[in-house]
Computed example of a mutant assay.
Amino acid sequence: MWKKIALAGLLIGIIAYSLPKTADTDKAYAAQINQARKQKNQQFRTAATSPLTAAQKTAFDSLRYFAPDVNYRVSAHLHRTVATPTLTLARNDGGTDAYRHYADVDFTLPGQTQQQRLQLLQKVTPAGAQEPLFLPFADATNGQQTYGGGRYLDLPVPADGAQEITLDFNAAYNPFCAYNPEYSCPLPPAENRMSVVIEAGEQTFHK
């Protein structure tokens, strides 16, 4: 039976959002990213909430990642939605989930001149505004270097009045259905499908 994706306890978390983009911080930044990845590997091996089956855990060594690149930690401009309309996000098993359209975010990726705009979402739950923000996205690496169904970012809710938010694509991770078909995962909406390459974050689970 299909299960809803369970993100708690297995996310990389919020990493070094305040670090400036300078050569002096590159090593410290990469060390933080790599430490978070090491911890996630350990959780995948041992945690009861791991999406891996018992057989997968026995053979598991490490998730696969692009090398940390501080240039993929970008500042995005927030365009908050006035009424936070509810939208329906399709899941890979044909079901749907309800999300609030919290804001649009505009940003430019390293080496690119074209600005990207994506929808920033918030899960509709009893917790309401306490839910973290959710950015499911697809890019030109999907189906090759990265999982074909797209990847996710989780973000803290910004302070009231904030006009900028940091998107760290080094923290992009796969949905649980990338590891185990027993899980059901939301798919990125059409508005969050980019034609550009994002060589940052988690790669495909299977080579």
Rank of each mutant, 00 (worst) to 15 (best):
7 L>F: 15
9 G>C: 07
11 L>M: 15
14 I>A: 08
15 I>L: 14
17 Y>C: 05
18 S>C: 08
21 K>G: 00
23 A>E: 14
28 A>W: 11
31 A>C: 03
34 N>Q: 14
38 K>D: 14
46 T>Q: 13
47 A>E: 14
49 T>L: 15
49 T>H: 11
51 P>A: 07
51 P>K: 03
53 T>Y: 11
61 D>R: 09
61 D>G: 05
65 Y>I: 12
65 Y>H: 11
66 F>L: 06
66 F>D: 08
66 F>E: 07
67 A>C: 01
68 P>E: 08
68 P>Q: 06
68 P>L: 07
70 V>F: 08
70 V>T: 09
75 S>F: 00
75 S>P: 00
82 V>H: 12
83 A>N: 15
84 T>A: 14
84 T>I: 05
86 T>K: 14
87 L>F: 07
88 T>D: 10
89 L>F: 05
92 N>D: 15
97 D>I: 09
99 Y>M: 08
103 A>V: 02
104 D>Q: 03
105 V>D: 02
108 T>Y: 03
108 T>I: 14
116 Q>V: 11
118 L>W: 15
121 L>C: 04
121 L>S: 04
123 K>L: 15
126 P>A: 14
130 Q>Y: 09
133 L>A: 04
139 D>W: 07
140 A>V: 07
144 Q>N: 09
147 Y>F: 15
148 G>D: 06
149 G>Y: 05
149 G>P: 01
153 L>Q: 02
156 P>L: 10
157 V>R: 01
158 P>E: 08
160 D>G: 11
162 A>K: 01
165 I>R: 01
167 L>G: 04
167 L>P: 02
178 A>L: 12
179 Y>N: 08
179 Y>R: 05
181 P>N: 09
185 C>N: 08
185 C>I: 09
185 C>Q: 13
189 P>C: 14
189 P>I: 10
191 E>C: 03
193 R>K: 11
193 R>P: 02
194 M>E: 11
195 S>Q: 13
196 V>R: 06
197 V>M: 13
198 I>W: 10
199 E>R: 10
199 E>V: 04
200 A>K: 03
204 T>M: 10
206 H>N: 10
